[in-house]
Design a protein around this nucleic acid. Sequence first.
DNA 1: AGTTAATGCAACTATTTAGTTGCACTAATC
DNA 2: GATTAGTGCAACTAAATAGTTGCATTAACT
Lengths: 105, 105
Amino acid sequence: MTANTLVPVFAALGDETRWSILVALGGGDASASALAGRLPVTRQAIAKHLAVLQQAGLVEPVRVGRELRYRVLGAQLTETARRLDQIGVEWERRLAAIKRIAEGL
Amino acid sequence: MTANTLVPVFAALGDETRWSILVALGGGDASASALAGRLPVTRQAIAKHLAVLQQAGLVEPVRVGRELRYRVLGAQLTETARRLDQIGVEWERRLAAIKRIAEGL
DNA sequence: AGTTAATGCAACTATTTAGTTGCACTAATC
DNA sequence: GATTAGTGCAACTAAATAGTTGCATTAACT
């Protein structure tokens, strides 16, 4: 499921408007049209952002009648966090190792 | 120290070239010139990327003689991961709450 | 069936950004 | 002191991206 490459996820999260969309979605779901009513951008702009978010696996479409709603996938956020943490820890470990060598141990 | 707003950090991490720079730095430190020898981009491009990474608090400059080296701050990565995880968990919690309501409980 | 409200697609603009080349400056080193 | 290796700054190009408007289409509801 989450055989995701990290970079597009970070790229998706690196935009203020997309965060405001995620926040507007909250724990529920909403369509691009509905979101356009709450945010200061057009529906089409929101639709593009939702496409980016979906591509990154951060959001999932749900058909409800004639409207296409989206909901946030919190699991993808925690999964990304897990991997990022692992990378960070690894970096600290390597840095510590190098420091040890530099100190002539 | 890490009174960072998350968005610039994600934006910084949302670029393949910047990851290759982080990887090239590894646990050690290197100057823009040194990195230019290992990566398929010019020194100036790398310098700009390093500026972005520094702005995001992901990298730290270290003066060594006449050269300006940079080293990865793994702590910032783990800190970011911590906050991202928290957000993800919160989202799942809210989603679960809404589901409970939807199921008429 | 006709109207309405939603989505989908396309073209266009403006801004940002990744990358380049070129040059001036400065600090080591021989 | 001359050379060399490194940084800093500036101008420029090309590509990506955020945003817009406009129109066609389609599905729900009276």
